[in-house]
């Protein structure tokens, strides 16, 4: 029997075992009407394997002990699928890592002694509720304006899997449907544009036969709602695609533009 040999190359990994001491600069705002400001918090004993949200949990524990108001931030599933966590960390939505949400970001991405800016997703359409929590209800209203297919649920609904769909279309529709609606696209865009989110929701249906029936109304209504919410205009910088935790492609925006122009011209 051959001796056990490890194929793990330790030289590829920059292990940090030492607990970190950090300076946090966090946006504090009592409520939607109050003025906010950046407040500095030193924090010690942060382990590299902690998630970013666990680090904030530790900060809040310390604030409770001190009798201070805790930092409010959004979170739910803490496994990157619910789209609830947000945060603009050191100038990037969901922090410096790629294809992850804030809850999947680990402290090993930072170094001992770092100063970390933590701000809410900023856009007129995403007003701050408290501290780092913003109201992303604009996305819900856009969805309600057309992000669905009307299905007869009277008992004789046809199984969607009985409709043949080309694999390529199904894959692209699925890719678009992986959008979790976190709002990182809006936060990253210099214009606070919601085009990547809306285009993903338009595309996931437009690519499938079930969605084509209402495609024209859907894109017209969703774009109208998007504009009414006060989002900015897309200028194709591509920042949204880079910062999107689900890797939603700019192809979707081009598709939505085509869908919209086609629907408009048909009247």
């Amino acid at each position: 029997m051959a001796p056990c040999q490890s194929t793990f190359d330790f030289r590829l990994y920059d292990f940090q075992t030492k607990n970190m001491k950090l300076t946090l600069k966090i946006w504090r705002q009592k409520n939607a009407a109050a003025e906010g400001k950046i407040v500095e918090y030193p924090i010690d004993g942060i382990e590299p394997d902690m998630s970013f949200l666990e680090m904030l949990d530790i900060l809040n524990d310390e604030l409770i002990v001190k009798g201070e108001d805790t930092v409010a931030f959004d979170h739910d599933c803490r496994e990157g699928i619910c789209g609830m966590c947000s945060l603009y960390i050191n100038g990037e939505a969901h922090g410096p890592d790629r294809l992850v949400t804030t809850c999947q970001l680990h402290m090993r991405k930072f170094k001992d002694g770092d100063t970390i800016f933590i701000e809410p997703f900023r856009a007129k359409a995403f007003p701050v509720i408290k501290d780092l929590v913003v109201d992303r209800g604009a996305f819900d209203r856009i969805q309600q304006s057309g992000g669905f297919v009307s299905v007869n649920t009277s008992g004789n609904t046809i199984d969607a899997n009985t409709i043949p769909i080309p694999k390529h279309d199904a894959d692209r529709a699925f890719d678009a449907a992986t959008c979790i609606g976190c709002g990182a696209c809006v936060a990253s865009c210099k214009n606070s544009s919601a085009m990547l989110f809306v285009s993903a929701k338009v595309s996931q249906f437009a690519l499938l036969p079930q969605g084509k029936v209402e495609a024209a109304d859907r894109v017209m209504n969703m774009v109208a709602q998007m504009d009414a919410e006060g989002f900015g205009n897309c200028t194709n910088t591509g920042a949204c695609e880079v910062e999107c935790p689900k890797g939603i492609s700019l192809e979707n925006i081009a598709r939505m533009n085509r869908e919209y122009l086609s629907a408009s011209l048909k009247g």
Partner: peptide
């Protein structure tokens, strides 16, 4: 219009991490 869609700017923004200066 685009500037007015974000009334409060970020204290720290790292635009170079995700887009070109030209864009």
């Amino acid at each position: 219009k685009n500037n007015s869609a974000r009334p409060i700017s970020y204290a720290k923004n790292n635009g170079a991490a995700n887009s070109s200066w030209a864009s």
